[in-house]
Structures are given as C-alpha cells and as structure tokens.
Design a protein around this nucleic acid. Structure first.
Lengths: 335, 335
DNA sequence: TTGTAGGCGTTATCAG
DNA sequence: CTGATAACGCCTACAA
C-alpha cells in the first residue's frame, strides 16, 4: 500500500514549487495559465486529494461548520439541513452534523467534538443549549428556535414565527365558521409557542380556549387525549369542539384517528389542522390541512447569516423571523 | 481573542513534558497517578481541547469514519445511523455523514470529501456506487444493500434479506386465505428484491402473480396505480385482488387511500401489507401490518464489521444477512 | 517512567 | 509572479 501523494509530489511532477501548487488549488488569480494547467494535470494524474487536516492546521480556518441537530428522526431537520448545505456550499464550507440526543446518550458533547475539529462556525438546530455554544466562543447561529437562552447569548436566531403559525391555523378555522376550536398540544418550547398563537387568536376572537396537553409529541399520545376530548358528552360547560388545531402533523393524525374510532367524520363533523406540512399531511388517506414553516428556506437563511458572520466580521446579531403559511387540504370544512 | 491553548500550555501548567500530556490524553497505562492528575487538572483549568486536525496529521489514523447516505429523508437511515453511532462510539470513532443525493446535486463527491478528511473507513448506506468507494482504497462496508457492485468490489455487505421480507409478507397473506394477492412495486434495487420475494412466494404457492409498478416510490404514485388496479371490473382474467403487498409503507398508505376512495374497506374487503415498519405504520389511522428489517441492528452490525476490518487487519469479507420479521397490525384480515 | 527530536501536509510570509 | 522557509499542534519513536 503506497502512501498518499502530497503537494510535494504534485509540485515535482508539474515542475513547479509547492507554494505554486497551493495557489492553484485555491484558484488564486495570479498564476500563469501554463503552470496552472501543468499543476492540474499532475493533480489528476496522481489522484491527489489535498488533506483538509493539514490545511486546517496550517491555515487560519478550516472552512467547515458543525450542525447540532436535536433529533434526526424529525423530518423538519432534514429539509433545514438541505437548505443549510446549499447555502454553505456556496461559501465553500463543508458541514458535519451531530445528533444531540443520541450523542448525549453516548456521553459525547457535540460542542466539544466540534471544537476539536476546529470548525469555523456552529449551527444550532433545535432546542439545544445555546448558552453553552456561546460560551465555547465559536461563532454560531440558532436555527428554528426562538428561546430565551439564545437571545441572552446574543446569538442570531433564524426562526419561523410559530406563534403566528398557531394563530394562522386558528384563524383559518374561525373563518370557516367554527367557534368551538380546541388545541391539542404537547410539552416543549415549540409546541408552547404554537399553542400560544392559538390562545392569542382565540382571545382575539372572543372565544373560549380549550387546550389539552398530551404527555409527549407523538401520534399515540395525541390520539388518547383526543379520544377523551371528543368523547365527552355535549354539556353546556364544555361542548364538543367542531375543530381541532394540533401542534404537529403526527398529533393531527392521532386526532383524526380518534375521531374515526368514535364515528366522527373528518372533515364532516370535525375539522383538523396540523403543523409542519410533513409528507404524511399530503397522503391521500390523511389529506391534512397544515401550517408550513418552510424549513428549507430557514436553513438557507441560517447558512447565509453564518457566512456573513464568519466573513463579514463584526456583523450585527441579524436575527430573522419567517412567517409560516397555510397549506389547505381536505381536513377542514365550513361549519 | 486569545489563541487556543495547545498541548504545550497544558504541559507547562502541569509541570510536565508535552509527550506526557499526549500519553495521558490517550490514557496510556504507564503514567504515574500524580502526574496524570496534574495533567487532567491543567486540561480543565485551561479548557483545553486537543485538535483532531493535528492529531490526525501526526498520527497514523484519524479515528473517524465517513457515512454516505442515499437520502436523508428516508427514516430507515436515521435508525441505521443510530446503530452505527453506538457501535463506532465503542471504538472511539467519530463519524461524519454525507448525503449522496444532495451532494450530487451540489456537485460534490462525498468519497473525495472523505478522502480529504482522511477518514479511516467508509460506510456506504444505500445504493451508492460501491465500486467507486472500493477504488478509493479506503476500507469500507456496505450497509443495507446487496447489489452486484458491492460484491464485485469485495466489500462486506451488511444487509437485510429483502427478498425474504417480500416472501414473508406474501406468505402471511396466503396463510390468511388470500389467493388473489397483488404487489405494488416501484423502481429501485430495494423494491426489486422485495418484489422478487413476492414472486417467489406466489410461484411456490401455485398462484398467479400480479405486479403493478408505480413510477416512483412515493405515496401518490402508489395511490394512482392502486386505484387503477382496484377499479378494474372483476373479469375472469384478472379478478380484483383481495390483498396487496406494497414494497414500502408510504406506498401501502397510498393503496389504502385508493381503496378508501373506491369504498373498499380495509381490511374488510382488502388486506394490505407494507414494508419497513415506519412510524406511520403504527399510527392508529393507518394501523398497517408491515415487514421490519430492524435498521438499527443492521447499523450496529455494520459498525462492528468495519471496526474489525480497521483494527483486525486482514479480516475476511464477513458479509452478514439479517432476516426481517413481520409486525402484525390491523390492515390484514382473513379471507 | 519521563523527556527530546523529527516529521505529518499545508498555509502564510517574505524575499527574489 | 515564483520559490524558499517558518509555523500549525500533535504523535511517535528513541533516548535518558
């Protein structure tokens, strides 16, 4: 097994100095075409791949950024990641991702891992600890979560306005004539913001809020609490809702499932709105009206803000908020 | 902004030499407890994080492996990744992931990127080009796909026996008394293997195969072809199937959706089996019987095989095949 | 058990 | 424009 070719090998084969090779590789303008071609030829001939390790060590930066993701199984992150990649690719940055929940389970600190990698910047996607990242001293942006920690840490926050999304969903139902609109919520900062949007809208409309909180954000938990909510007799104090806003799509599917088991037709007898516009919402069997935060757009914005921070130097905080939109499908009917 | 502390700083503060620090960090046994503690104390006091860049450059390996994933949005990979992480964490390996489809779109070659990172090994998850990886000379294993390319390249393959899975699903339906069992398939190697399992089982049972292929692996495409399949009048030549095996869960949901639109009850008039046991299969609204390949177990196995290959030296090919199992839910009824 | 010296493959800084 | 030369931070013999 022969050793990898180095920049020396390339230089020798091309008949130039090592520095010239380095310049060509980072396409500096001040290189004669002849020499440049000679170098390029040598590179391909030797199947040479420059070492990022050495480059990072010697240079002032690694041109890499780390992304800390809460939970990979959330499709939201996948889209956001795609947006990030495209934005960062333009700046020539490579990105490496870490799964916060899993790494925690394994006893690994992703921030520490990224410091060891000497990443130029960090993107915090999800409800991870912004203060810890800020303390690490690595330039960072927070993607998708507007919480106190991030703002205290003075990190830019690129987020969807989830309260506005909750409001949007609720208003959509109200416009369809619904007045008994319930909210199936869950633990977590994200759910809390969506729920607050619901409450604000309800208050604004002069209606009575009904919030039930499932023990977790999954479909099964939502199905159970929804079953209870829908099964209760139509008493004067708490009439059965004619519409439900669930704080995420799986939970909305849980609500629909519960309704179906009780013989309540959707959208005939019950309208349902979800959140995130995940793939399941588009399934024919579900056809769920949902609020979309366009995670891809968020990801791109986060990448741009981070690049600006890294290259522009002392850029301002530059947080950005995006307003979600409603994707209407077949789970809502007029009352 | 002060510079990062280096191993020199730690050594100085602890009153020892740089090499001793290096030994402590890699917990070599031959270090006196007193010195060890002094070093550890200095490390935390200085908030020192060793540079993987420098370590990789100087050492004989980087203790990192790259994972090339076909398409992040496939939940299957998420589980497999978790398994990989746990297995590789035991060996002290860090892993970095690349998204094949997205990187291709951006014009980046993940193999090249990993070579630049000097990863010790590569895990190929999905239908990427095994030969190219083999050519790169980096030790690698293929996770989840048994195709010709990998075997020709003499890479270990850790895969679920998908043909067995297709067979399993079909037999399950046959045991329930179904005789007109159709298969809703799609393009791709994976679907092809599952479909072949179906065909084998059908042949073995002496039944007539009915395969319809959707243009892609999505729910919508499956819904359309299923609608056509189910709508056709009960002619002598092609009776309407009483059961359908779909090569993945979203497609199965598409089949159920099509049935519902046609007023065909599931599982009353039509039984459906999916594949992958994705989260949606467990949703109450869907309650889909599905074949499970246990991707997490696969991931762990792949990690172990790769570690063996990296540390054991000249280990054999050591491919491993896992037999999937059936997860029975509510979408199948006796005929 | 501890310390010393050399080198890993680049980039960056200066002279030519 | 081009070509030496010194870092970069660590590992790995080897010597003490």
């Amino acid at each position: 097994m022969k050793k990898r070719p180095t920049i020396y090998d390339v230089a020798e084969r091309a008949g130039v100095s090592k520095s010239l090779v380095s310049l060509v590789l980072r396409d500096s303008p001040r290189v004669s075409d002849a020499k440049r071609e000679a170098v390029l030829e040598a590179v391909t001939a030797l199947n040479y791949t420059p070492s990022r390790l050495a480059a990072g060590l010697a240079g002032t930066r690694t041109r890499s950024v780390g992304v800390i993701i809460d939970d990979f199984s959330n499709l939201w992150f996948v889209e956001a990641l795609a947006g990030l990649r495209t934005a960062l690719a333009e700046g020539g940055y490579a990105l490496s991702v870490a799964d916060a929940s899993l790494n925690a389970h394994l006893g690994i600190d992703p921030i520490e891992a990224f410091r060891a990698l000497r990443v130029d910047g960090i993107v915090l996607a999800g409800e991870a600890s912004a203060p810890a990242v800020a303390r690490s001293g690595v330039p960072a942006v927070v993607l998708g979560v507007r919480d106190l920690g991030a703002e205290l840490a003075e990190l830019p926050v690129i987020a969807s306005d989830e309260a506005a999304g909750g409001r949007l969903a609720t208003m959509h139902l109200a416009v369809q004539g619904h007045r008994d609109i319930a909210c199936v919520s869950a633990p977590g900062a994200s759910a809390a913001r969506r729920e607050r949007g619901y409450c604000d809208a309800i208050a604004e409309l002069g209606l009575t809020p009904t919030v039930v909180r499932a023990p977790d954000t999954g479909e099964a938990a939502a199905r159970e609490v929804a079953a209870e909510l829908l099964a209760r007799a139509e008493s004067a104090q708490a009439p059965r809702p004619t519409a439900v806003f669930a704080v995420n799509d799986p939970m909305a599917v849980g609500v629909i499932g519960a309704a179906r088991e009780l013989g309540i037709a959707v959208p005939g007898d019950l309208s349902v709105v979800g959140y995130d516009d995940s793939p399941i919402a588009a399934y024919g069997l579900v056809s769920l009206t949902s609020v979309s935060g366009d995670p891809r757009e968020l990801g791109e914005a986060a990448g741009q803000v981070l690049i600006a921070k890294l290259e522009g130097g002392a850029t301002q905080i530059a947080s950005r908020s995006f307003t979600p939109r409603l994707v209407a499908r077949g789970s809502v009917a007029a009352y």
